[in-house]
Structure formats: C-alpha cells, structure tokens
Design a protein around this nucleic acid. Structure first.
Ligand SMILES: [Mn+2]
Ligand SMILES: [Mn+2]
Ligand SMILES: [Zn+2]
Ligand SMILES: [Zn+2]
Lengths: 134, 134
DNA sequence: TACAAATTTGTATTCATTATAATTTATATT
DNA sequence: AATATAAATTATAATGAATACAAATTTGTA
C-alpha cells in the first residue's frame, strides 16, 4: 500500500513531512532513532525540526503505523515492521537486526549465528486485574 | 546461597549497602527502579544516596548478579531473576509480572490471561560479523 | 481574500542517568 | 595506636533524550 493510503486509513492527514518520516522508517531496515531520522531528512526537508520528528513518530505510534522499542541505552528505536518479530542487538556494533521467529523455535534461530548474552521478551497490554476494574 | 556469598563469588566486596540493595531487588518481585530502591532503603540506611544506588546496580549488573530492563517510559527496572523469562507489562497499572516461558509456547501462556497489545523480544549479544573482526 | 484549523517550528523545561570531585570508611603498614 | 593507602559512599554538577508550551507557518474553506 502507498504511504499516503496508510496514513489516510488511520485518519492521519498525509503531509509531506509525515510521508517522508514514515517512508524513511519503513524503507531503512536499521530501526532508526529520532536523531538519525532528523539528520537524514534534514537534507531534503531543510526546515525540518526535531520536534516535528518527535511529534510525528508519536503520532504514527499512536495510530499503530510504527512500533517503538526502548533500547538499553535509553533511546527509542522505531520500526515500521508490525509483524511480531524478535530483534538481535549487537553489543559490539550496535546494529539491530530483525529475527523472524516462528514462535516455537525462537532461540534456535538466533543461537546458530550469533553469540547471545541476554534475551529480553516483553509483552505489553492490560492485565486481567485491570481489565475487570474498568 | 547467602547474598554475601554471591557477592564474594564474583569478587564484589559485600558491604552492608550492597547486600541490602541486592537483597531488596532479590526479595521484591516487582522489578524496582532506582527510585523505589532508594526510597525504600533510605528508611533503614538514612545516609544512603541515590548515586550509590546507581553505582551499585551498575556494579551488580556488570558482575551479572542482576539484569536491567529498559522500559518504554525510559526508566530502568532491575531483576535478580537470572533465568530466561518474559515479562508482562500492564499498560494500565504499570505492574511488571514475570512470565515463565517454556520457549515453545511463549505466546500461549500469556494470551490466556492478559490482553496483549505488543510483544517485544530482544536478544543481546555479539553478531557474527563482529565476532570475526576481533 | 479572510478566517479558522491544523501543522510545523523554536525555545524552555523536565527528569533519569552519568560524570566528577569531595568525603567518609575500611584495610594495610609501621 | 597512628599513619598511609585504597575503597566505598556521598554531594553536586552536567548530560541528553524526551516533553511542554507557545509562536509561526501552512492548509482548508467560506
Ligand atoms: Mn524490527
Ligand atoms: Mn523478571
Ligand atoms: Zn556487530
Ligand atoms: Zn494492570
């Protein structure tokens, strides 16, 4: 689907800024942070402000067009891949690679290629207690 | 094992401050952040400083006695449970609960009880490229 | 064109974490 | 015990990503 259609579909007005920010997150596979998005797009959008990047990723995230992952070094990385998938974070070069998991053989897939120090699996949602207390 | 033994085993001098900080993280099951540790232990260690809490969790993490998890709200949570396990983070009450996973039926376990909005699985380690370039 | 609404920008602020240096405490030596 | 040395703890300042807020610009519509 075209980016413009994706934005319209969730009720977000497809301004050129928003399209370019989404497109960048979608096209690059390296899970960029706000700085990377800002610096890269600044070249083609000279008036772009970092605040707009923050606003836009927040907007895109709110409308579930992208996902945000908190990294160990306290920065957010953004990802347009909405499929449930794992990430491999290299302690040496910092690269974040997608790990397409089959749920069942999660560990196997990665262990074969990389040296795993730690596995972090987090589910976000609403707990049963909070669901009933609404 | 006694906390004192655990600290000695990794070459960390078991001062009363360190013992109490580790014990607190170990005994409480709610994955405390630095503030919670500080405020709670301040009652029995009146001279405790927040810097010491930061120093100590860093020390414990370096020696692999605890794990640190970056949360979406940009704070670190600490955990003395070293087993590979998942976490369920409630969007409503903020509670972080352990999810003991059998690797194979990761999703099943949680889906039955809670309402999952997002699943984050991250592996930390050294990628194959970086392993060879040493 | 004129007006209102939405979008973008610039600046100030927040707050968890880190850096640095001073102070206190523990350990070793004479 | 007194002194010297090292380690641990504390206090304060600095960092930096993220947010809050208000002004400015752009867009949509009458
Ligand atoms: Mn990804
Ligand atoms: Mn846990
Ligand atoms: Zn690497
Ligand atoms: Zn809850």
């Amino acid at each position: 689907m075209q980016t413009m259609q994706k934005l319209k579909a969730v009720g977000v007005k497809p301004s050129i800024t928003r399209i370019m920010i989404y497109d960048y997150i979608f096209s690059t596979k390296d899970h960029p942070n706000v700085d990377e998005i800002f610096i890269t797009l600044k070249e083609t959008l000279p008036t772009l402000s970092k605040t707009t990047v923050y606003n836009t990723v927040h907007l895109l995230k709110t409308h579930r067009l992208i996902k945000a992952y908190a990294m160990p070094n306290h920065e957010m990385r953004y990802d347009a891949n909405l499929d449930v998938h794992a990430h491999f974070l290299c302690a040496s070069c910092g690269q974040i690679t997608d790990v397409l998991i089959d749920v069942c053989d999660i560990v196997q897939t990665v262990i074969s290629e990389n040296c795993i120090d730690e596995t972090v699996i987090t589910f976000h949602g609403t707990c049963s207690k909070c669901q009933t207390s609404v």
